[in-house]
Design a protein around this nucleic acid. Structure first.
Lengths: 181, 181, 181, 181
DNA sequence: GATGAATGAGAGTTCATTCAT
DNA sequence: AATGAATGAACTCTCATTCAT
């Protein structure tokens, strides 16, 4: 594993465990087993480090959700599979998911990072759009439907870090019941 | 308005507008039109100030939700009224609601504060319990149902600060559809 | 002596003895027997501290030169007295004078500070102007004449920190011979 | 042009444009189009680089002043020619001259460098010595006379970077009037 | 109780220098 | 000889907290 990844990994761990404010650059360097200065060869500032970490993880999450996603499958199936995958990612990558939660409202996130991250949602939108066209999903603003679903699922995951298969299914189906017509 | 309330109000405003890290005690004192030392007569530390503010606001929110709540009304009606009130509070008290969101995952919150806040949810639990007994709400852990609902609604509110009556109703009904049998 | 003066005095001493770059704020605080933070109650930054010190000292120098200055005396006498006073100040306030020399070309000096300092020269200009009108001083740009005189005298002082009365007179008379017609 | 000269040239440019403190070794390397490590093959440290640059430029200045200098010419003519050449060098090599000014009082200059530079003045001394013997220059310490002249001329040049022929002559003649008997 | 000047630990960051390649 | 990633000491500056008034 290269140095940059070491730094990102160390930062992720410490930010989640202690919060951003309580995690000094010195500590990250120690955890990453490199000098403080080395971090500044890869990131211009602590702020940039956090932003890059955020975009990185969010990108990985959506890459995972959408890989092998079948856009031709029935809408409900697409919906269930995408959100189940989201939950699987959260379970397999707890630090990453907690980080996304903790920083999702952080004022430290730049406009640029936020924009990048928002673009990742677009493919998800299409599932909802298709469902609305077919009349099987409620006819409301897609963005609101997505936010509703994501809010519900993220909260459920965060409060049940060791969720089982049954519960995962229950949650996704509840989310489906919420938006279906 | 007394000094303590002035301080809490000033802190709330600045924390939401600029983030906690960017808000110094000096600045809060200036906004509250009192000396720095005065704040330490009312709060042992910045941390305590944040914790007290959090518990205060969360308590007000639930007090508002549950005042005049009719525990004899039908379950769906109780559900809808409680969550509509929650949204109304969010709309009428934007700073307060944003603050709750921003700090809900904060590592600065003490175990004690978290516990106090969790207790506020209990009355809400009874609506779900009653619904489960009557067979009109899904038979799952009440806490998970509450978390699901709250996650969905909080996310929806945060992304639609100027939500209208229609949308509020839509969201609550989606939340109901999710948990109803 | 108050705290601010202590800080200025400590900074002056250390800047002259070691140079600005080699003098840390920590060291100045130690010399001034105050905390580092205290310095930032009086000066926004190291840069501001230097600028204020520069303007302060230059102002004192010119105040000394021009106090009891007789603008009705013959031009040569005014010239000699003013520059002798300048040299006396340099001798009695060696740290101060060295500081002015060392920082006179420093890029750290703000435009504002430079402007303030330049205004101090105006009364000096009038001696030259009067001499030019009377035809006893060379008819060249006053500013160039002043710069010539000051350059010569400052260099002489800096290289003869323990100059005696005789030498002082010699230098001033040489300066006079340079500009007189 | 070889690497070492490239480095010296780059350093000169950046030191004058931005000040020494604001010019990092990394930046010099970039300007010189070489690696940072390469610089340390030619100079032991930043300090040494500055000292070498200073001695180099001062040496070039005096080499220029004294080349084709006629030690048999009349004293006044020698004086005028030498100092005119000094000013010509300053005008043709503005960066170099500004550098000399900026660092002339710098605590970074080593005793060794200062000594080397002082030796360069010796040939100039002889002009003054000859004049004193002939009774046409004031009978004062030669070193003081040289310092006086140099201080006056350097200050005049620095404040008139685009000086014309007429002004140059005026300044040299003023300098001569100052020291002549 | 009210105040804010004083404090210094600790933050983020820089940069001269080293050394393995 | 040439390179530049790696380093960490040391910098400037912040700010929660204290305490004498």
């Amino acid at each position: 594993m290269n140095k940059k990844d070491n730094i990102l990994k160390a930062a992720l761990k410490l930010f989640v465990e202690q919060g951003e404010q309580a995690t000094s650059m010195k500590w990250i360097a120690k955890e990453a087993k490199c000098g403080i200065g080395t971090m500044y060869n890869y990131f211009e500032s602590k702020e940039e480090l956090i932003n890059e970490l955020y975009v990185d993880i969010k990108t990985k999450l959506f890459k995972y959700i959408l890989e092998e996603h079948d856009t031709n499958a029935p809408v409900k199936q697409q919906f269930v599979q995408a959100w189940l995958k989201s939950m699987n990612y959260a379970i397999s990558n707890k630090l990453e998911y907690k980080f996304l939660q903790a920083f999702s409202h952080s004022p430290i996130l730049s406009a640029e990072a936020t924009e990048k991250v928002n673009k990742l949602l677009y493919p998800l939108f299409e599932i909802y759009e298709k469902g609305k066209k077919e009349g099987i999903i409620k006819n409301q603003d897609t963005i609101n439907l997505v936010i509703f679903t994501n809010g519900a699922i993220a909260a459920s995951i965060c409060n049940n870090p060791n969720i089982d298969e049954q519960m995962k299914n229950n949650i996704v189906l509840m989310a489906w019941d919420a938006i279906k017509n």
